[in-house]
Nucleic acid binder design. Structure first.
Length: 886
DNA sequence: CTTTTCACG
DNA sequence: ACGTACGTGAAAAGC
């Protein structure tokens, strides 16, 4: 060998398929002048770039499937039967992908009666003989059977850029068998997506263990006398033909009658003229100028130049030109905008953009007037962040019309990002880079020193906000989400900003006292555990704990995790009777959790300036419309155990003589369920003011109206009610309350008989989700469920449960948000301040003399937030600390 | 950077 | 037969 040859073999259909779905959300925004969809072509090209860069091939081939009929379908008519057909939006792109390949100097090939796999298998074999290094690129894991010393298989995982590369060692590590044994596994377990059966009752686990033992399917049948499991043996005998046939179907051919030779595969590289023409036809601006041609005036990344003016004290007055409208972006490099430094800002409209690193300028009249004006509309990215940032500079942002981040979140909770550039890309706008690309990531992330670079990026942010406004508003309108945006989420951003800025006072002395107390307790418990274990070890390490419990002390493992035996609470509780050490470990875990996460964690984030914690509510994160809380998370402060609950003693009012006041919705999710299902029986219980879990117990256990409900029945009924809200499964319920799956099934069946409206709703909502692809809340909040029609049972089941749960959890989130907006207005003349929201609960601080007013006012605002078919119920508590407000 | 565990609704 | 409850965030360990 004089020079090394590197061959790149690409599975054209499977990669195109991956590219299409990776950019599925961009489907409608990516079309060329002729209306041709281009997302798969674009994605394919991106993936191609990555592979070419990675492999630097001397030779390359893209193999395509020749059509539906192959030698496999001739042998087995149902092969790949039942597959939903390729979407027309993808089919139309397939021939164009071949044009792309031609322009990029790569040969494509297909062969009648054979699949792309077989072409690749055959070519890879020839290449091996000829001493080539081969890389196969595909979206299909089945091709990993072709790995060898000379051949690796790169499988695209998710998105366009993520790839997992398989070598024989990696295959063995991941699957537990050698590459050549993959077909044996497939023969036994079959393949649902290719639609061949294998052996009944044999799934991946069984198949792998059989092949590990006997090497091949032939080996299995030669050793039938050693197989003791009766049912499995019967199935193996029964399905013997099927096993061999399935293996045959799974086997990629390495001797397909291909008419091309290795020497035909030379990678010629980009055909400049042809490729320019192609990119122009596809409207691929970014690629066009990556090629460094003069076909446009963009830079290497395909970005058109932008113009900006650096704002100074001398040209401030130019801002007076903006009379009706500006886009504004305030750059704060750290995620936490309560403490972040300020890096700069951009403000402007159309082709007039002003930028600066000096945020002090914002305090000057012309800029400040613009931002606070009720006449000039502002468009931003992340209103709450911008509001809090400006508030720190003494500027009260007002009259925001468009928030790109918020609007985008409402349109699709799945495809959302806090990165303006990345989010813009998802909406089909490419004239900006992501922050990650410009600023870097991880430890290297930094605002560039280069003014030109930084200011251009800022300017593009302003332009991006302006450019996407119209289209996103239009989409909100089409989704009937304008009201949700304008009357709910946009006002919500201000309310949350006010709450975050207010913060809640922390009694650090109290926390410090608890810290010493827990340190002592932990030390004691630790010593006891070491004695019981007979050695010292790190109790906080699951790995070391496993060793002590299951190896040294010989306790029985109950549950496995990916890496070993589980030591979680439910496991330890079952083991508690076997050894006293277990109880102590549970105690240690509980205290050390409270100590590290709450006592020490909270002390770390108290602002030294005001002795308060200022959380950030993430308004655009959850899939259901709930808020989440970070830095610190104030939505998971302990309450269920007394030791933990004491943390709440450290949350106190910020003024002397004030109280903490809290109101929570009682059973809001079940009430929402009663409302949206219209179930008569469930509604009746709420209208009568019954104890809902007792009422459910009465029904599912068929008890008379006067019968006593014992606590255990009520507990079980409560679990059933929870299960219903979560999208019930018999397994889940059985696990939760420790009954058999059969009993759980019985409970569920009875529940549905007693509450037929609920049953009907569950059926309908799943059907509707399958039909429309999304579910909605009462305020038209939307959640798309791409997996609702998945062939994979687990993915599909998960999506179905989500379809049942999201309208309930999400509508409850809508309700409390509406209440919060009304609340801010209702208490505006009081000194009382709203501080926290914990999903179904609002927490305030107020002077003691206002408590009687709040006791009437707050519940009335909350229970009248929306009109449902059943009443809402609110309970209130107050005290000197959050702990006492119970 | 991922995994495990555990805190909340 | 599959392998699960729904929605979150933080800490620590161990790669």
């Amino acid at each position: 060998m004089t020079e090394s040859k590197r061959l790149l073999l690409i599975d054209g259909n499977s990669v195109a398929f991956r590219a299409f779905f990776a950019l599925y959300t961009a489907l409608n925004s990516m079309t060329n002048a002729d209306g041709l969809h281009t997302n798969a072509i674009f994605g394919f090209n991106r993936m191609l770039d990555i592979m070419l860069e990675d492999v630097k091939p001397t030779d390359a081939l893209v193999a395509f499937d020749a059509g539906k009929v192959t030698f496999r379908t001739k042998k087995y008519a149902d092969y790949k039967g039942g597959r939903s057909k390729t979407p027309p939006e993808l089919s139309e792109q397939m021939p164009v992908i071949r044009q792309l390949l031609a322009a990029r100097g790569i040969k494509s090939y297909e062969l009648k009666n054979y699949e792309a796999d077989d072409i690749i298998g055959t070519m890879a074999k020839q290449a091996e003989t000829a001493g080539y290094e081969t890389t196969i690129f595909t979206g299909d894991r089945d091709l990993t059977q072709l790995t060898s010393d000379k051949t690796s298989v790169a499988v695209s995982k998710k998105g366009v850029t993520e790839v997992e590369t398989y070598t024989p060692e990696h295959v063995e590590e991941k699957l537990g068998v050698r590459p050549d044994q993959i077909i044996e596994i497939k023969g036994l377990q079959g393949d649902t997506s290719d639609n061949y059966p294998g052996v009944t009752g044999v799934g991946p686990k069984t198949a792998v263990s059989l092949i590990q033992k006997y090497g091949t399917i032939d080996g299995v049948y030669e050793n039938m006398d050693k197989i003791t499991a009766k049912k499995m043996k019967e199935h193996l005998i029964e399905d013997k033909d099927s096993a061999f046939q399935s293996r045959d179907l799974a086997t990629i051919r390495r001797d397909a009658p291909i008419e091309i030779k290795l020497s035909d595969l030379t990678y010629k590289g980009d055909q400049q003229d042809e490729l320019v023409k192609f990119y122009q036809e596809m409207n691929f601006q970014s690629y066009l100028n990556k090629m460094n041609t003069d076909a446009g005036d963009e830079d290497v990344l395909g970005l058109k130049p932008v113009e900006f003016t650096v704002l100074t004290a001398d040209n401030l007055n130019e801002l007076a030109q903006f009379k009706d409208h500006v886009s504004f972006y305030l750059e704060m490099p750290d995620a936490n905008y309560h403490t972040s430094t300020f890096a700069g800002f951009v403000i402007g409209e159309g082709d007039k953009w002003f930028v600066s690193r000096d945020v002090e300028l914002l305090k000057q009249a012309p800029v400040k007037d613009l931002l606070t004006s009720d006449k000039v509309q502002k468009d931003v990215f992340d209103l709450k962040r911008t509001y809090v940032g400006l508030n720190r500079l003494g500027i009260h942002l007002s009259n925001v019309d468009f928030d790109l981040l918020l609007a985008s979140y409402l349109l699709d909770t799945n495809e959302n990002s806090n990165d303006l550039g990345r989010l813009a890309f998802q909406h089909g706008y490419h004239q900006i880079q992501s922050d990650e690309e410009v600023y870097g990531k991880g430890a290297k992330r930094a605002i560039p020193d280069d003014d030109q670079l930084f200011f251009e990026h800022l300017t593009r942010k302003g332009i991006t906000i302006e450019s996407l406004k119209k289209s996103l508003f239009k989409q909100l309108d089409e989704n009937e989400q304008t009201k949700l945006y304008r009357d709910l989420e946009l006002p919500m951003a201000y309310v949350l900003a006010h709450m975050e800025i207010a913060g809640i006072m922390v009694d650090t002395d109290r926390l410090s006292a608890m810290q010493s107390e827990f340190t002592e307790l932990l030390a004691q418990t630790q010593q006891t555990i070491f004695q019981e274990a007979g050695e010292e070890f790190n109790i906080g390490s699951p790995k070391q704990l496993q060793h002590i419990l299951f190896e040294k002390l010989g306790l029985t493992p109950i549950k496995k995790t990916k890496t070993g035996y589980s030591t979680s609470v439910d496991v330890l509780e079952k083991l508690a009777a076997e050894a006293p050490i277990v109880e102590n470990i549970l105690k240690y875990r509980q205290i050390s959790k409270i100590q590290s996460t709450y006592v020490e964690g909270l002390l770390k984030v108290v602002h030294s300036t005001d002795q308060k914690v200022h959380t950030r509510y993430l308004q655009t994160l959850t899939q259901t419309g709930r808020l989440s809380s970070v830095d610190p998370n104030l939505q998971n402060i302990p309450i269920r155990t007394e030791e933990g609950r004491r943390i709440r003693q450290a949350f106190i009012p910020s003024h002397k003589g004030w109280q903490i006041f809290s109101s929570d919705y009682s059973q809001i999710e079940l009430r929402v369920l009663a409302h949206i299902t219209h179930d008569k029986n469930l509604q009746e219980a709420f209208k009568e003011g019954d104890d809902i879990h007792a009422s459910t117990a009465r029904r599912i256990f068929h008890l008379g109206p006067d019968a006593e409900i014992d606590p255990n029945m009520r507990r079980q009924a409560k679990a059933v009610n929870f299960g219903i809200v979560y999208g019930i499964s018999d397994f889940g319920l059985s696990q939760n309350i420790g009954i058999t799956r059969k009993q759980a099934r019985q409970f569920i069946d009875t529940y549905f008989e007693e509450y037929p409206g609920v049953k009907q709703y569950m059926t309908d909502i799943v059907a509707s989700a399958k039909d429309k692809g999304y579910v909605e809340t009462i305020a038209h909040r939307r959640r798309y469920l791409p997996d609702i029609n998945a062939r994979n049972f687990n993915q599909r089941s998960f999506a179905e449960r989500t379809a049942m749960n999201t309208p309930i959890q999400g509508s409850a989130a809508d309700i409390i948000k509406i209440a919060m907006i009304k609340m801010e207005d209702a208490i505006k003349d009081l000194q009382a301040t709203m501080l926290l929201q914990v999903h179904d609960e609002l927490i305030f601080e107020a002077p003691a003399e206002e408590i009687p007013t709040l006791e009437k006012l707050v519940p009335s605002v909350m229970d009248s937030a929306v009109k449902l078919e059943i009443p809402l119920k609110v309970e209130s508590h107050y005290g000197n600390t959050w702990y006492e407000a119970k």
